[in-house]
């Protein structure tokens, strides 16, 4: 299942001491269900901020944002948490795996949070790890895995509950080129296989071009680069 993302006039600013930094200055965004969209832009341009807004981790100062036709404005903290749990899968640059849990347990974490029956989801976690070539690393802790392996675990974790929306924030930014390529290929493959609507923030123009559309965020506004 996939969802449509629609944003109109998103504005977001931060206070940096006395200074107010306006990161997003009226961003419009339309992503069709199942579409894979790359967002690129210079550091500090607000790519992550946009991803956090779409993922319900933060709320815009102004503007409208709807995912799957449901407006995120006005949802309270509990409802936003439920939205993230049921709809969104996140992949972060620094993996953000839980150090005290094995690879398999990390992948299973969204099911724990959603309080789903763990037995069947444990099987699904095993299948996902096998799909990314980590079947034999399932019982290893993050500290025992390479960066590429950790990001593959994080990818499995993000996709466990088959989210309608995948948000990846520079998923290969902390990996060497070979590992980065492997993770990116897997991400594309899994997102396409599940028909997941995906928003991908990247600095890598080569990777961005392999997505269906590329948007560039500059001076607080989003521009279409290629379709």
């Amino acid at each position: 299942m996939s969802v449509e993302v629609r944003a109109r006039g998103l504005v977001k600013s931060y206070r940096d001491g006395e200074r107010v930094v306006e990161v997003l200055r009226g961003v419009d965004l339309d992503v069709a269900p199942g579409e894979l969209v790359a967002i690129e832009g210079p550091s500090g341009s607000g790519k992550s901020t946009l991803l956090h807004l779409v993922g319900g981790l933060d709320s815009p100062d102004r503007g409208e944002l709807a995912v799957g036709g449901r407006a995120l404005a006005g949802l309270d903290a509990e409802e936003l948490a439920r939205y993230r749990c049921q709809t969104v899968g996140f992949v972060f640059q620094f993996y953000q795996l839980l150090a005290d849990f094995t690879a398999a347990e990390n992948v299973l974490m969204p099911a724990r949070i959603a309080r789903l029956p763990l037995a069947s989801w444990r099987r699904r976690a095993g299948e996902l790890l096998a799909a990314v070539g980590l079947a034999d690393r399932a019982t290893h802790f993050p500290g025992q895995l390479s960066g590429g392996e950790q990001q593959r675990v994080a990818l499995c974790r993000a996709l466990l509950l088959e989210p309608s929306l995948l948000l990846a924030d520079e998923p290969t930014g902390n990996l060497d080129p070979a590992s980065g390529e492997q993770v990116f290929a897997l991400l594309l493959e899994l997102a396409r296989a599940h028909g997941t609507t995906s928003l991908l923030v990247t600095h890598n123009p080569g990777m961005a071009r392999r997505c269906a559309r590329v948007l560039r965020l500059q001076n607080g506004a989003l521009h279409e680069l290629s379709r």
Binding site: L57, A81, R84, P110, I113, A114
Partner: peptide, 16 residues
């Protein structure tokens, strides 16, 4: 803190 961020992103409510 970083792990808490990951849990929050996966849908754990701050109160939880």
């Amino acid at each position: 803190w970083r792990e808490l961020g990951a849990l929050a992103a996966m849908g754990a409510a701050p109160r939880e």
